[in-house]
């Protein structure tokens, strides 16, 4: 019994020590930052001071998913596992809300500071994320500059078109996303109406192929084709999609610009705006 008490008081002392060093670390910017999520990778790559970020997740080195491949490849990649991340002895770990909760818990139990970022659900949330990341890295000034540039560039791209074409976002497994998502927000900013709204799909959900055809959108924007084969992607090549007379199938737009709430989504808005102007010209 006494042994137990001794151990528990030792643990308390240890915890207090850890807490103290953690608060001490808060005061000055972190020096060894590891990111384990594609989106925090890219936000951090854009904001971190040279040498501050020491590892990014493997996905950010994949040209199909990441818009910052070159910068990411300059750093060692991690597989987002608690063990290998801990061995890098980071003083801050950047994770997403979709990072496995077990990983986050394990790292926190080991005394590592983990900051969790929610994914962006709209263009308006991107400045918020930039500010959060700037604060976490102690790079507030850079974040403010990027926020200003982002707002200015976005304002230039958004206009009020007289006609808003009806567009459908159509991914593998007949999945679509609505206005409550980053993709929906990009679509709206580029001057399109989203047909998911007509079916009450705000966040997203299944848009059966039949429903898609019957709603006759002006343009169908399909998701990217992943390597390898999957029946889930068969719907993107179904002959019925090509049988509609008045519907344009947009050339596959690169997914990587759409995934993460970083200033690079402006490229997606730009590409979609170009598509809308080309529809108008027809």
């Amino acid at each position: 019994m006494r042994g137990c008490v001794q151990i528990s008081s030792a643990i308390t002392a240890l915890l207090a020590l850890m807490l103290f060093s953690a608060t001490a670390a808060l005061a000055e910017p972190p020096q060894r930052v590891v990111s384990v999520n594609l989106c925090t990778d890219q936000l951090a790559l854009g904001l971190a001071a040279p040498g501050q970020l020491i590892s990014v997740s493997r996905l950010s080195q994949d040209p199909a998913s990441s818009v910052m491949v070159a910068a990411a490849q300059a750093l060692p990649a991690n597989g987002s596992g608690a063990e290998e991340v801990f061995l890098l002895s980071p003083d801050l770990v950047l994770a997403g809300t979709f990072t496995s909760p077990d990983t986050v818990r394990a790292l926190r139990n080991l005394g590592v500071k983990v900051k969790v970022f929610a994914p962006a659900r709209s263009l308006a949330e991107i400045p918020v994320l930039l500010a959060q990341m700037g604060k976490a890295l102690g790079r507030e000034a850079e974040a403010d500059l990027q926020i200003k540039n982002f707002r200015a560039a976005l304002a230039k791209l958004v206009d009020a078109p007289s006609v808003r074409p009806r567009a459908a976002l159509y991914y593998a497994n007949s999945y679509t996303t609505g206005t409550g998502t980053l993709a929906g927000s990009i679509l709206k900013a580029a001057g399109f109406d989203n047909i998911a709204t007509e079916y009450g799909l705000k966040a997203g959900g299944t848009l059966p192929l039949e429903q898609l055809i019957l709603s006759q959108p002006d343009v169908i924007i399909t998701g990217r084709d992943y390597p390898g084969q999957a029946r889930a992607e068969n719907n993107l090549t179904h002959p019925a999609l090509r049988a509609l007379d008045h519907t344009r199938i947009a050339p596959t737009l690169s997914d990587r610009d759409w995934i993460c709430g970083t200033p690079q989504v402006l490229d997606a808005v730009r590409a979609m705006r170009k598509l809308r102007l080309s529809l108008e010209a027809e």
């Binding site: 992943y226 390597p227 029946r231 179904h238 002959p239």
Partner: peptide
């Protein structure tokens, strides 16, 4: 083992069968 992120979810289709969105092909 497929590099496609959707392939693993396909196990259900192969084990349980479905006719959704098939075509004349």
């Amino acid at each position: 083992l497929s590099p496609n992120p959707f392939a693993a979810a396909e196990i259900v289709f192969w084990m349980m069968g479905s006719l959704a969105d098939r075509s004349f092909q």
